[in-house]
Design a protein around this nucleic acid. Structure first.
Lengths: 343, 343
DNA sequence: CTGAAAGCGCTAACAA
DNA sequence: TTGTTAGCGCTTTCAG
């Protein structure tokens, strides 16, 4: 079961050469049917498994893919990783996960580490701090397979899988507007991230459509993506202390949404009586919140799967890829009572 | 940055032999200070990184560890994996994660797969369905490094990291009793799992201490660990339909606790007015629930770290390990309003 | 149809 | 102190 039989063992046992055994195992045609059968049966009997490390060394491929995300313990990313693993596993790749904790330095280090591990490709979701994407550009130009998902680099022309952030944001904002909220604040991640900008655009477009003014003071960026509780708390307090206090907040990032809820609770605000809330999150328990939370949910599992499919296809492509695709998937707006206007 | 310089390249460039370069790089003493400096400087300059695959082949070690858990998208396990990664990364190991989805067959397949990948050791948390642990016994007897965490195999004498399930359970149950609940049901995972039995024992001991009868009808097992929503729903409904309906439920597993909350909400029951609740979970948002949920929380991150430390120590031990340790860590009881008696 | 041998990158025993 | 060489498991020319 776990003793490693090698090709050599088989060759010796059967009085053949290693190359013959190798050929038999790989279904080569230039081999006698007899010998082939013999080898296959014996291999089966001893439960022979080729040594993947030897194969990797030979093929100059590690059969592993590197993943760069901000955090594993995050609903969106744990679901995405689930999707990544599910595909990778079936295709014979393993997955090396690294976390940036929203730091650009750690992101760079992780990428270098993954490369030194000779991963065959990279699945990347940028850190909130990242504005310099030159390392990816460099690698991509060299022909190294990279697929971005969710937090993509606008200026690297490779494969990307993203949600329809504009629409997700637009719909949620419009929902708040239709519910009767007129002073809607927007709490979002670092502006470095394209998703932040797209989500802001959706937010803004909904305001425009309904002839609501956009107040710059209503826009708050948490540049550490909610990693630093105090940063979020400060932002929320600033919103609440404004002369014309917002009557609702639309939050544009998973972790931020949760942090925001914690802070509003801590401050003793009633939702939605004191303030309405809607936000991006993939939490499976938003329904259980007090009050149940209106959310924009992304198909994280599928996004992980799609990104991995494309990455592996790129890795295994015989030809240099020229056409890089950007796949966009739809978000889902789940309406609950946190976005009802009750005052 | 990503061109792979090899020892051979360095040797050629410097007019040395590969072995000299190797020795210089590995800080061997049997080498001239001059040469060493030369090599190191050049290696630094071209950013030489040893090929881990070649190393693995040579050392007959993959520098990877296999992880077997039921699910990644689960608060407890995603936190544990976070801990696992944090240690493994620093020690130069990578982590291959596999999921059982609570199926014994998948668990067996995963273990075989990991072995064929030549992982150097295994970090295992059993599936709810697993009662046959012979594959682990077999491997362990062969000297293969295995560390169990959380859901351990009682009959395999290897390293184990577990929470103090008895006490966690006892304390939570006693809390419910002290709050005034007298008819406390126990919703738990498959009895195959030692943690289920330990948690039941803690539950039972608290009842005994307070002279409360244990009603067998109040004990419900969900053998699929909450993976099958209908199973949980049936169990909860059976409890609610009993002649002497329980006035509280103590839930003994992360996923089950969440499922139970979903179902009670769906059935329109008010917590804690209609029924009190406390349960094991590592959710970071239990505070936001309606009502805030009283939980038993495990130090999942640390458990992951400890398990990985011990596994790597075992892997790297020069001597066959004889003494296998079982580390027990304390749980934390976080008291919130779901366990208050309001009727 | 089958075997011998080289080579993937690296280490280590053996020579010099 | 340095170089030569074999070998880790496998595939793949090149001979036979």
């Amino acid at each position: 079961m776990f003793e490693a039989y090698t090709i050599k063992d088989i060759a010796k046992a059967l009085g053949l050469s290693t190359s013959t055994v190798s050929r038999a195992l790989n279904g080569s045609y230039e081999i006698g049917a007899e010998t082939k059968k013999l080898v296959l049966e014996y291999a089966e009997k001893v439960n022979y498994r080729p040594n993947p490390i030897a194969l990797s060394l030979k093929e100059q491929k590690s059969h592993s893919i590197g993943v760069v995300v901000c955090e594993v313990a995050n609903d969106y990313f744990s679901q995405a990783i689930n999707g990544i693993e599910s595909i990778a596993y079936n295709r014979g790749y393993h997955v090396i996960i690294t976390q940036t904790h929203e730091s650009f330095d750690r992101e760079s280090t992780n990428v270098k580490h993954l490369l030194s591990r000779h991963v065959d490709g990279l699945l990347v979701s940028l850190s909130a701090e990242t504005s310099d994407t030159s390392q990816y550009k460099y690698l991509h130009d060299k022909g190294f397979p990279i697929v971005f998902f969710d937090r993509v680099a606008a200026d690297v022309n490779t494969h990307k899988i993203i949600a329809n952030n504009f629409k997700g944001s637009f719909d949620a904002t419009e929902l708040l507007i239709n519910a009767g909220f007129t002073k809607i604040a927007h709490l979002t991640n670092s502006n470095n991230l394209l998703i932040s900008r797209e989500r802001f655009d959706g937010f803004k477009a909904a305001l425009d459509k309904h002839q609501l003014d956009f107040k710059p003071g209503y826009l708050k960026h948490c540049n550490h993506g909610g990693m630093i509780q105090d940063e979020v708390e400060l932002a929320v307090k600033e919103l609440l202390n404004m002369d014309e206090r917002p009557d609702a907040i639309f939050v544009a990032s998973d972790r931020l949404t949760i942090s925001c809820m914690h802070i509003l609770k801590k401050l003793g605000l009633k939702i939605p009586q004191d303030i309405g809330i809607a936000g991006f999150t993939n939490s499976d328990v938003a329904e259980l919140f007090d009050p149940p939370l209106t959310v924009v949910r992304q198909p994280a599992f599928q996004i992980g799967q799609m990104a991995t499919e494309i990455l592996i296809k790129t890795i295994e492509s015989k030809w240099p890829i020229e056409d890089f695709i950007t796949e966009q998937v739809e978000t889902e707006l789940i309406i609950r009572s946190s976005s009802q206007r009750l005052f």
